[in-house]
Design a protein around this nucleic acid. Structure first.
Lengths: 209, 209
DNA sequence: GTCTATAAATGGATAGAC
DNA sequence: GTCTATCCATTTATAGAC
């Protein structure tokens, strides 16, 4: 499996200019609707230069996705969450995750990778490994810890992790992927996360078994 | 708002041939990767004929999505669910919904609409209205009924509906949209739905308040 | 490495005969 | 309505000078 590395060339260099232009255009318009001409113009670079750095449109697309995936595992929150009571930790994780995943950039990456998943299956896989899979692993570990501390009683950690993500994304994610609604306010996100955590904690409370 | 009508021309006619070919190609390869040439060839029709029926590639794409949306609200299950105890009804709805939404066709439509949501925003909206929105409305009504019967105690029906869909789709939907895994077995679907319904019913049990 | 200019192919869309 | 043949713009990709 191809590992998705984010090369991130030094800022200001031609490759960086090109990748940034490609990012804006591809993420805004999708793979098919963007020409190499458009990229070269947006990057203030000739097409020959473009092809000197990226051998083809496919390659540029892949590189751009890899670059945009520069994985935000949202470091920092895990230790903080671990130090809190279960519900508070879950809320922290939920808010952080939802805020990230509903950001315009994350949505755009999702959209373009989903839209081209047929044609770039390895890219879809690499994207998943570089992003969602990491989050899943972190949350699984966290839930395991809550189990260990006796705060929750989860029989199937894997399944519960997926449920947690499903709960906090609810329909918001899909609606935003479809461009059906503006980005929700902080208050709305808070409401969804609170409700999700309530349900989750109530459902997996040790006493509930 | 444009209503998404599914004209479905009489089987065997040229328009039907064209729409079928367009469906296969667009759903398999995405909008950008399919040429009108390819569609005409697959449909065994000349390009002129194609353009006689569908004025442009955009129009053909729209028509094809409309046709594929020929809305499956999964009639029939609602009355049956209504006659069951809450958990059984939810399981029936869950299984039916997940089986439908994880079908190759539904996934392909999702993928292509998502991928082109930027360029065809009205199409994305029409798709949502013709499919997901109807399901949401049905489930909301069902949950309301459960509330009325005293089997559940749901404070915010709208939110709970979204939670229910999020729970049963969990990560499966996203993974399949990304072509990361084969279609899950009946048993797997059953497992996910059972777990979702358990959590949901436990969380919204009247006694739990 | 970078540019200008261009090759070679393919794309969407149409003209005109039947 | 349907076909064959074709137009013209655009696309990916490259050649050759600096």
């Amino acid at each position: 499996m191809t590992i998705l590395v984010a090369p991130k060339p030094e800022a200001g260099s031609k490759p960086a200019q090109i990748l940034e232009a490609a990012g804006r255009l591809f993420l805004e318009n999708g793979y098919g609707a963007v020409s190499m001409d458009a990229v070269s113009k947006k990057a203030n670079v000739s097409k020959a230069t473009l092809y000197a750095h990226f051998g083809s449109k496919d390659e540029l697309f892949r590189a751009m996705v890899a670059c945009e995936c520069a994985s935000s595992t949202l470091e920092g929150i895990w230790d903080r969450a671990m130090a809190m009571p279960a519900a508070d930790g879950l809320r922290l994780i939920g808010i952080t995750f939802v805020t990230f995943v509903l950001s315009p950039k994350a949505l755009a990456v999702h959209r373009v990778v989903l839209g081209e998943a047929h044609r770039f299956p390895e890219l879809a896989r690499a994207f998943y490994e570089a992003g969602p899979a990491l989050m899943v692993a972190r949350v699984s570990a966290y839930l395991e810890a809550l189990n260990g501390r006796g705060e929750l009683a989860i029989p199937d950690i894997d399944l519960a992790t997926q449920q947690f993500f499903g709960l906090i994304k609810a329909n918001l994610h899909m609606k935003l992927l479809l461009c059906l609604t503006e980005r929700p306010s902080e208050a709305t996100i808070q409401r969804f996360v609170d409700a999700a955590v309530d349900l989750f904690v109530r459902g997996y409370a040790p006493s509930a078994i």
